[in-house]
Design a protein around this nucleic acid. Structure first.
Length: 770
DNA sequence: TTTCGTTC
């Protein structure tokens, strides 16, 4: 950000904005065309597109942008800006022409010269810092002086804030939010009461505030500190999945957090602070529960929007006989026959305003989704082919999922377009979406896959955007890992009995007698015994301790490869990255076994990782333009040296199924080795052979749903190696900390309230939300 | 201790 931090290798583009291509108001994100004055990048044209978080850039004013080139598949080469500043000349002549430019109305060459002569080469800095230095300039009207200061501040306000915050590792995006909120007062507020930012700026944490406070010599008895600490405790608990905290637990944690030396805050002091925060709506206390407002209103929103949808039942009821006929036709077309549960699921989904479909892997959720879509189309005489609709908004089916990969899979399995929920709703990149009750989704039938991954905040935005007449199907597996964000929406909705649901339990994919499926069921029902781990046709447990894990996995894989099994079909799954038997170490060693260094194989080094032709790798971010998504697994198929291609860049080519993606050095961080991947990342994928180490060293991660998720990834065969005790302990551990949520309760209440007082007008708590 | 999502 600062000059002194600008190393020689840092790339810059100096130039002036020509016009704005795209601007996102919510987070001040812009894409702008720039005329290049000078650059140390390899870019040779005279104009370039830059993108980043900018306050309003002035056309015609020179700026210095720091960042790096990136190649966008659709828009070509662009410059991603990490930081920037108005370019202020550092010579007297330059300064004079800068000050006498059109930017400063009323300042001519003569006045500019006087200013520079008087104030020197750091004139601008001095003016911004203490405007009164302009008082003594001969011939400068006070009005003009005021203009200069305002223009400079306007131009530099954000830059100053960004520079100030960079010292505390606060990036451009957050700096932009802070500047938009406080404008010129930003630095003053940050320096005197950083705790205020915890309340006002989403994403600004207590720890940062505490650090800034310390550096600015503020003491621990700052009046805003307890309140900020309370918000922090709630934010942390949200990270652990909780929607609220019970009051006593919250008090306790605040006490622990704010403990300085032996000085413990009294419970009374903290409760007093809670009440104040409650009055100011910084937190919401209800029935001995403490909520962050966003989460409180999100939960309320989900409950009332579901209620709203359920209050608008679907009208046309297809007679059973007709449905039977239609489903028969579909079975013929698809060459399959639906099981009893599957038929029930299709039938119920077609007749329900909102339905939940659950089921583990292999129970045919996708088959049922396809059946529902086809049957719906036939009943309503609609085309499934999107090209048959002139206006895409008329397309009746809306398919979505919480992750890019899940959306892609949904597209592949149904042949229909699907998008992430974020894309569907038009995320603004910050804390809201384009689609809501005033601009709802279009279409007739909404299908949300992998619903167990949807948190309470996203669920609220999704339901908010569903119009009254739209039919909804939520699909998920409640035994898998809970959402990253707070809440357990799927489980809570299932708990609330008023929403129709069908649970698919019959496994079609694996033959009866599959030990893998049997183990999954035993774990689900908490009935697993040590003798259930005995060897079977598709299962084995190889006992070993933590330090032997890697050796055991290596020899399993060596044997498998000798038998001619493809490494593509073998997936190692582990719960965590570090530790002796963690993902990092496993990858490092398995690479040597599966794809060792040879003279002929090319390789590149990145930090302490070596990527070699033939390596199995996993993509870590969505790149929808290139059809690659977070979690996709591929293989390094080629490495090009700098002198071997027109771009003069080292390149690594990864093949994902049919698709090949080219990575330059700076993109390597979007990749990781994938001989072993985390169980979390494996969610939603399946592999013929799964090798799963389980040792006590993983204990903080070992939980029932994690192990269940891992072992249900295996289609053909499962090999566990490690300590039986750790495994048995793990499957007994139900989510170490139960999530505090009140969605079910809110829905039950809402149902009763409306039943009792039919004419009562409905509350809309989300009126308060922005 | 793990983990998600955009904009031309």
């Amino acid at each position: 950000m600062l000059d002194e931090q600008v190393s020689e290798q840092q790339f810059y583009v100096k130039g002036e904005p020509l016009f704005t291509i795209f601007h996102n108001e919510a987070e001040q994100f812009s894409i702008v065309k720039i005329r290049i004055h000078e650059t140390n990048t390899s870019f040779e044209e005279s104009e370039i597109v830059i993108k980043g978080y900018f306050a309003n850039l002035h056309e015609g004013t020179p700026y210095l942008f720091y960042g790096e080139l990136e190649s966008h598949i659709k828009y070509g080469t662009q410059f991603a800006v990490h930081s920037y500043k108005t370019f202020i000349p550092d010579t007297k002549e330059g300064l004079i022409s800068y000050l006498s430019s059109d930017l400063f109305y009323g300042v001519g060459k003569r006045t500019a010269t006087r200013i520079v002569n008087k104030l020197g080469e750091r004139a601008i800095e001095k003016i911004v810092h203490s405007p009164h230095v302009l008082n003594d300039i001969k011939g400068l009207k006070s009005e003009t002086a005021k203009n200069i200061v305002e223009r400079l501040k306007e131009n530099q306000g954000f830059e100053q804030v960004a520079i100030y915050l960079a010292k505390y590792q606060v990036g451009m995006k957050l700096a932009q939010k802070i500047y938009q909120n406080y404008k010129d007062e930003a630095i003053e507020i940050i320096a005197t009461n950083p705790y205020q930012l915890v309340f006002d700026i989403e994403g600004f944490g207590f720890k940062t505030a505490d650090m800034i406070a310390q550096k600015n010599g503020l003491t621990y008895d700052h009046p805003s500190r307890i309140g900020a600490g309370c918000i922090y405790v709630l934010q942390q608990s949200a990270k652990n999945g909780h929607v609220y905290l019970p009051v006593d637990l919250c008090v306790n944690q605040v006490q622990k957090l704010l403990l300085t030396g032996n000085d413990k805050l009294s419970e009374e002091e903290i409760i007093h602070c809670f009440n104040e925060l409650n009055t100011e709506k910084h937190i919401i206390i209800q029935e001995e529960r403490v909520y962050l407002p966003v989460l409180y209103y999100a939960e309320d929103g989900v409950a009332s929007h579901l209620k709203r949808l359920l209050d608008h039942p679907i009208e046309d009821e297809t007679p059973k006989a007709e449905l039977l006929k239609i489903i028969g036709e579909i079975e013929e077309e698809e060459v399959l026959s639906y099981g009893k549960e599957q038929f029930e699921a299709i039938d119920k989904a077609l007749h329900s305003k909102v339905m939940i479909l659950t089921g583990g892997p292999g129970t045919g959720k996708t088959t049922v989704i396809k059946g529902i879509i086809k049957a719906y189309a036939m009943i309503h005489d609609l085309s499934i082919d999107i090209t048959a609709y002139d206006d895409k908004a008329d397309y009746p089916f809306v398919l979505t999922a919480p992750t890019g990969r899940a959306a892609k899979r949904l597209t592949e399995s149904t042949g229909l377009p699907a998008a992430t929920i974020h894309r569907l709703l038009g995320w603004d990149g910050d804390d809201s979406f384009e689609r809501d009750e005033s601009k709802p989704l279009t279409g007739k039938f909404l299908i949300v896959d992998e619903f167990s991954m949807v948190d309470i905040w996203l669920a609220n935005w999704l339901f908010k955007a569903i119009p009254n007449q739209m039919q909804v199907l939520l699909v998920g597996d409640e035994d898998q890992l809970p959402s990253v964000g707070p809440g357990q929406v799927l489980s809570d909705l299932l708990e609330h009995k008023a929403i129709p649901f069908v649970a698919l339990t019959e496994v079609y994919r694996q033959k009866e007698g599959s030990k893998i499926i049997q183990l999954a069921h035993l774990i689900k029902r908490d009935q697993l015994q040590v003798e259930d781990l005995n060897k079977d046709r598709d299962f084995s447990f190889i006992p070993c301790n933590e330090s032997q894990v890697i050796q055991v996995i290596s020899s399993i894989i060596e044997k498998a490869l000798q038998k001619g099994i493809d490494m593509k079909d073998i997936q190692i799954l582990a719960p965590m990255y570090r530790t002796e038997a963690g993902i990092m170490m496993i990858n490092r060693h398995i690479q040597q076994v599966v794809n060792p260094k040879t003279n002929r194989k090319r390789e590149v080094k990145m930090n302490d990782m070596t990527y070699r032709v033939g390596d199995k790798v996993i993509q870590l971010v969505n790149q929808p333009e290139e059809g690659v998504f977070n979690g996709d697994i591929g293989e390094v198929v080629a490495i090009f040296k700098e002198n071997e291609n027109v771009d003069k860049k080292e390149q690594l080519v990864v093949s994902f199924d049919e698709r090949e993606v080219v990575y330059e050095r700076k993109d390597y961080m979007n990749l990781m080795h994938a001989f072993c991947i985390s169980i979390h990342k494996s969610q939603g994928s399946e592999f013929p052979i799964v090798i799963m180490p389980i040792v006590k060293g993983y204990r903080r991660m070992l939980r029932k749903n994690l192990i269940y998720t891992a072992l249900t990834r295996a289609k053909r065969s499962l090999i566990i190696c490690g300590e039986k005790q750790a495994f048995l302990q793990g499957v007994k551990t139900v989510d170490t900390n139960k999530r505090f949520t009140s969605l079910t309760e809110k829905m039950n209440k809402l149902q009763n309230v409306v039943e009792d007082e039919n004419d009562e007008e409905e509350l809309s708590p989300y009126d308060f939300m922005d």
